[in-house]
């Protein structure tokens, strides 16, 4: 009992200490932003963090000192809840959250918001808690751009192989629905076969390779994320030409596209959900903390990167790197937050 009380006292003391220090930090325009990432095991997340750090450095150079406190939940929503509560206890000024669940984190978000710490959810999806600021990609825009480019190149017709993502995933279904909606304008593009690539380069490649001999001519491949590289390798390993497909932002994708272009004049573009949203999120956080009126729902842009841009800006990038777009603070204010 006694030890229990002592611990409570200690916790209160700690809380007081952190509150004092964060109050001190605010006084000289220093923002501590907690970044809760889901896992660091992939290129996209690496790009997300790099973009966040880039934006923080840019802002710091302009006199708004931004510090990031990054925590990694290793894929576990339960861990993420604890990390969110810890960030709240530490008294960070803002929390950027890639939520591992749309419901499980609601309580922890409430804790943060009632402690006066705004929470912004982004990248992995939204949460059902309306107190969280939401910065998301518009999958309809993704579908329009993706299908639009392919339809323009093929004159709105052709046989397509559709590689879906992870079965049962909400984002997967949303992206697929967006493709189908965009495809309804082009009835002459026919999906001749559909496989699930599990958002896994290796699985996508094997599934495509196993049915490839039975397929008629495939003019187009539709895919999500990392599957484009796997699909191309399946066609190459079978000695067939790589059909028209849109590539992602991973170094493997970019290098393959550049390589195909050098060898045979193959043309395409890269369209992806942009890891640069990490930078956007930091900009939004600083805007909010600086007193700008930030809407509760915002849309992150979906960039389309042409072959020419890839050649000039990203030639010789490492396979393990990822392309992300640099969004400045002023650009974010004008185009994402919509401040006057």
């Amino acid at each position: 009992m006694l030890s229990h009380m002592r611990r409570n006292f200690m916790a209160a003391g700690l809380l007081l200490a952190t509150m004092l220090s964060s109050g001190h930090a605010l006084a000289e325009e220093r923002f501590v932003i907690g970044v809760a990432v889901p896992f660091q095991g992939n290129g996209w997340q690496k790009g997300f963090l790099a973009a966040a750090q880039w934006a923080a450095a840019e802002l710091s150079a302009k006199g708004k000192k931004v510090e990031l406190t990054v925590v990694d939940a290793a894929g576990d929503p339960q861990t993420q809840i604890q990390q969110l509560n810890n960030l709240t206890l530490q008294g960070v000024d803002f929390i950027i959250l890639e939520p591992l669940s749309d419901t499980a984190l609601n309580g922890a978000i409430n804790n943060a918001v009632s402690a006066g710490i705004p929470v912004l959810t982004t990248a992995l999806g939204s949460v059902t808690n309306p107190k969280a600021i939401d910065l998301q990609f518009d999958y309809n825009e993704l579908g329009e751009k993706y299908v639009g480019y392919i339809a323009e190149r093929t004159g709105g017709k052709g046989n397509a192989l559709n590689i879906r993502g992870l079965a049962g995933n909400a984002a997967e279904q949303a992206i697929q629905d967006a493709y189908i909606r965009a495809l309804s304008k082009y009835p002459e593009i026919k999906i001749v076969s559909e496989v699930y690539g599990d958002w896994n380069q290796s699985v996508a490649q094997q599934r495509v390779a196993s049915i490839l001999p039975t397929l008629p001519t495939v003019d187009i491949v539709f895919s999500q994320g990392v599957a484009a590289f796997g699909a191309a390798q399946a066609f190459l390993a079978a000695g067939r030409e790589v059909p028209l497909q849109v590539y992602g932002f991973d170094g493997t994708d970019v290098n393959l596209l550049l390589d195909l272009n050098t060898k045979s004049g193959y043309q395409s573009v890269a369209i992806n959900t942009d890891p640069g949203v990490g930078g956007l999120a930091v900009n939004v956080a600083v805007a909010k903390l600086s007193g700008v009126d930030v809407p509760m729902k915002m849309v992150a842009p979906i960039p389309e990167i042409t072959l020419a841009q890839l050649k000039t800006d990203h030639k010789g990038m490492a396979d393990s790197d990822i392309v992300w777009v640099k969004y400045t603070y002023d650009w974010t204010l004008k185009n994402v937050i919509g401040a006057k």
């Binding site: 095991g41 992939n42 599990d198 958002w199 896994n200 380069q201 290796s202 699985v203 490649q205 990392v226 590289f229 796997g230 390798q233 390993a237 493997t252 396979d319």
Partner: peptide, 12 residues
């Protein structure tokens, strides 16, 4: 053979 690696290569 596949020309690339990813963290979920072995999962299946």
């Amino acid at each position: 053979y596949q020309g690339g690696v990813s963290a979920d290569l072995g999962r299946s």
